[in-house]
Design a protein around this nucleic acid. Structure first.
Lengths: 115, 115
DNA sequence: ATAATATATAAGTAAATCATTATTTACTTA
DNA sequence: TAAGTAAATAATGATTTACTTATATATTAT
C-alpha cells in the first residue's frame, strides 16, 4: 500500500513533467533521434537556458540520459528507466515529429566547416 | 501539421491534469466505480470545494461526465471521449484503488437512514 | 594562453496552480 | 415553506512554474 503510493506518485510526477508542451515535444523528438542541446534549440522559440532547465527536469526523473561528445552534450531517452514503458505508452498519443527533425537537419547547428 | 499540434496540445493538457496526485487518484477510482462528490471526499484530506474544483477541471477536458441523481451528482469516466484510450493507457501505470473504494464503502456517506 | 562555442547554473519575475473560507444554488424532507 | 444536505462558485493567498538575463564552466581551436 505504501509501495502503491510511490507508484502513483512516480506516475503523477512523469505526467506532470510531460504535461508541458515543450517537454512533451522534446521527449517525442528524442524518441525518434538523440539530439544535442543546440539541435533541440533549433526547434523552439525559446532561450538556451530555458531548454537546459527543461532537460534538467527530465534528467532528474531519469527520463533522459546525457552523454558528452566533445563540445556537445547529447540527450537521449533512457530506455533503462522503470518509467520507459509509461513514456512509450504516452508517446503513442503524440504525433510524429519528423517535421521538427527536418528543421534540425536543415539548420544543422553542429556543422563545423563551411563545406 | 496544424492538426498535429492540436493533438500534441490535447495530450499535454491531459497529462498536465493527471500530473496531480489528487486528480490521478480520482480518475483511477472512477475507472473502478462511479462516485458522487461526497464519496470522493471520503478519500481525501481536503475541502469539498477543492475536490469540486478538481472535478471541474476534469470535466472541462471532457475526461469525466456528471449525472445528477436527486441530491447527489455522480461522476464517471467519459468513455466517449477521444482521450479515453490515452487515459486507459495511463491508468495501466497506476495501482488499483480498491483500498480507496473500501474507504468509501465503509464510510458510506450517501446512507440516508440509520438502519 | 586566448578566444570562441556549447551548455549549465543563478537570480529575478510574471503568471499559473492549488489550496483555503465564505457564499450561493439545487435538491429533499418535515 | 422552512430547514437540512450536496455541490458549485467566488474571492483570496501561498507556492510553484516557466520564462528571462547575467554569469560560470567545459571544451575546442588558434
Amino acid at each position: 500500500m505504501v509501495k502503491l503510493n510511490v507508484e502513483l506518485e512516480r506516475t503523477a510526477a512523469v505526467l506532470k513533467l510531460l504535461g508541458d508542451k515543450t517537454r512533451l515535444t522534446i521527449i517525442a523528438i528524442l524518441k525518434q533521434r538523440e539530439c544535442c542541446v543546440c539541435e533541440i534549440l533549433e526547434v523552439f522559440d525559446m532561450s538556451q537556458p530555458s531548454i537546459s532547465q527543461h532537460l534538467r527536469k527530465l534528467k532528474d526523473l531519469e527520463m533522459v540520459k546525457e552523454e558528452r561528445r566533445g563540445q556537445w552534450i547529447y540527450y537521449s531517452l533512457n530506455h533503462d528507466s522503470e518509467l520507459y514503458k509509461l513514456i512509450e505508452d504516452i508517446l503513442e498519443h503524440v504525433p510524429d515529429q519528423t517535421d521538427k527533425i527536418n528543421m534540425i537537419e536543415k539548420a544543422n547547428p553542429t556543422l563545423q566547416c563551411g563545406c
